[in-house]
Design a protein around this nucleic acid. Sequence first.
DNA 1: CGCACTCGTTTACAATTGTAAACAAACTGC
DNA 2: GCAGTTTGTTTACAATTGTAAACGAGTGCG
Lengths: 127, 127
Amino acid sequence: MTKTNRQISVAESRVMEALWERQPLSAEEITAEVGDEQDWSPGTVKSLLNRLLSKEAISAERDGRRYLYSPRLARADYVSAEGRGLLDRLFDGRVSSLLTHFSEHEQLSADDVAELKRLIEELDDGA
Amino acid sequence: MTKTNRQISVAESRVMEALWERQPLSAEEITAEVGDEQDWSPGTVKSLLNRLLSKEAISAERDGRRYLYSPRLARADYVSAEGRGLLDRLFDGRVSSLLTHFSEHEQLSADDVAELKRLIEELDDGA
DNA sequence: CGCACTCGTTTACAATTGTAAACAAACTGC
DNA sequence: GCAGTTTGTTTACAATTGTAAACGAGTGCG
């Protein structure tokens, strides 16, 4: 067991999100957190936590009768891996392709455009 | 059977890619196409085609002894759905977040930057 | 001291996915 | 017309995922 590199599923990533936001958390707290969006029974959260433990995506530290869980995988790393995967699968690995797609087929929000401009500035500027 | 809206899996999307590139294709041609990347037996491709048929993502038209398959789902729609899903899951639905992430944690290629600039021009310009 | 409650651990179970073999129908060359 | 080849259809089977119930150990109440 305890195979590290396994894939984190969508449901599991919900739990990770809770932990990335605040940490460490008990199973109960996590159930409360995700209960906002998902409607999971405590048992479900338990299972997800155990799967995450065996994937070594989180760590658990005893706190009296219960455990407190913390992410072991950094969110940025997870996001990078997922983003990279999608980019490779759908956009031939190119951010530019993704951008083109979104500007052609989806709406770019004002925020998005502002960020685009900010990035350009930054890139033109130094770096 | 024939439940439309079901999710297209990664393996299935490989087959879709082949069909989006050229169409219609026979099962044999598809096997050859994807055989480049994946190493699938003809049986595997058959299964995937059938699943895609039952998901109504492709259509089949008889051509003598065999069938010719064509996409029924547009690539842009698929890409939008997938992209939107990832964006929602990881970037709170905001393209700007994704951009920020990629510029901070990944490399933006020259292409990407060029596309960024082109988009700005275009957006500033008319539209 | 024994029982209930609280956590965690183990087990479950159906759906989906990846990967294919088995089977069947149709056609083609001898 | 029969056997082999080709192509499609059905069935299979293990791994992963979503969703949880069952079971078990520790602890605090009465």
